[in-house]
């Protein structure tokens, strides 16, 4: 397995005290696979990515285990981490302008990790930079190499970010909303580029997004996050055709679909609980139309629906399903057939 994440947790200090931002996050990414992470804003997608990279704010408390190619990187020293960041694993951020250095040329920034991680000569590095700029579809590479980020459009900057991330041919590429800041026609160009990269390399990709359309376009497998926890995990087609968790179902029902006009959309009442105010049981209980007594008292475990498809919801617990009365089982029926 390329990446194995085991029971990852993260606490951050806010307003003088620690609150848990991520809890019990476990998943895997295989070579050549694209894993999507979806969920609404604040659910912890970016923090999951930054935990993997160990690029966390001061005083962050990280728990659990992350193995990259069999090495437990959560126990690595700062120096050892710097060796793998940008080399074995790299990350693309949402906002290409703030993540590029305005004072350095495009070429210098793409070259940086080549200096850090390879023994290439100056000429070899220049050739590699030019090759990378062309590979991500940038025009006039020879001129661009000496230009500054502000001279580029949003789409071009994101291509530069991808070139930087790809410079050392990482095994794992983490993309945090790489197209959210872009217009739809430019987004299509970048998604096309990502799909090309996928076909041509054996890289594992983690694609973070809140856009179910993007998930459907590029991901092989998906995890759905809610309030700092994983609530469902399934292969992409299974997730869209047979969503099990009431949150996943609600999310999919809320999207306006082409061809359905002025129809009432599904929506999820209420709002996400804030870190530090998490309920004892299921974190979705306040907003869930199927909530039962046990949901409010006890955290639901991950339950296997079928191979590769799991969800954290009491509705699918056999004992719970048997225990509850007739009124509840009709509720269950509707939920199961949704």
């Amino acid at each position: 397995m390329l990446l194995e994440v085991n029971d990852l947790s993260l606490s951050l200090k806010r307003a003088g005290k620690y609150s848990k931002i991520l809890d019990g996050i476990s998943f895997q990414v295989a070579q050549g696979e694209t894993l999507g992470i979806v969920g609404e804003s604040g659910c912890g997608k970016s923090m999951t990515a930054l935990s993997l990279m160990q690029l966390l704010p001061d005083k962050a408390r990280l728990g659990g285990k992350v193995d990259l190619q069999g090495e437990q990187i959560t126990s690595f020293s700062k120096r050892k981490l710097e060796k793998i960041r940008g080399n074995q694993m790299s990350m693309i951020f949402q906002d290409p302008l703030t993540s590029l250095n305005p004072l350095h040329t495009v070429g210098t920034q793409v070259e940086e990790s080549l200096i850090l991680h390879t023994k290439k000569s100056k000429q070899e590095r220049r050739d590699r930079v030019l090759h990378l700029l062309r590979a991500v579809g940038l025009p006039r590479a020879e001129e661009l190499i000496d230009e500054y980020p502000h001279q580029l459009s949003g789409g071009m900057r994101q291509r530069v970010m991808i070139a930087i991330a790809m410079a050392c041919e990482p095994q794992l590429l983490i993309c945090d909303e790489p197209t959210t800041a872009l217009d739809v026609t430019v987004q299509a160009q970048i998604l096309e580029l990502m799909n090309d990269i996928k076909r041509q390399t054996k890289m594992g990709i983690i694609m973070i997004t809140h856009d179910m359309g993007v998930v459907a376009e590029v991901c092989d497998r998906v995890i759905v996050m809610y309030a700092g926890k994983i609530v469902e995990e399934a292969p992409v087609i299974e997730l869209f055709q047979n969503p099990k968790h009431p949150y996943t179902q609600g999310l999919l029902d809320s999207i306006p679909k082409l061809g359905e006009r002025k129809k009432k959309l599904g929506s999820i009442p209420g709002t996400v609980p804030t870190p530090g105010n998490m309920p004892a049981g299921c974190r979705f209980a306040d907003r869930c139309i199927h909530a039962m007594d046990i949901c409010r008292s006890t955290l639901p475990p991950m339950i296997n629906i079928q191979e590769n498809h799991q969800t954290a919801c009491w509705l699918y617990d056999e004992k719970e399903a048997k225990n509850d009365g007739s009124a509840r089982s009709t509720e269950l029926e509707t939920a199961l057939h949704n």
């Binding site: 459009s153 217009d183 026609t185 299509a188 179910m212 359309g213 459907a216 992409v236």
Partner: peptide
């Protein structure tokens, strides 16, 4: 081009995408 660029939330749908060159 705009319509074809829209990511469709349906993983089995076949896409016929017109990729525009360049930026606005």
């Amino acid at each position: 081009a705009l319509l074809s660029a829209l990511p469709i939330p349906d993983p089995v749908r076949v896409r016929n995408r017109i990729i525009l060159q360049g930026d606005l």
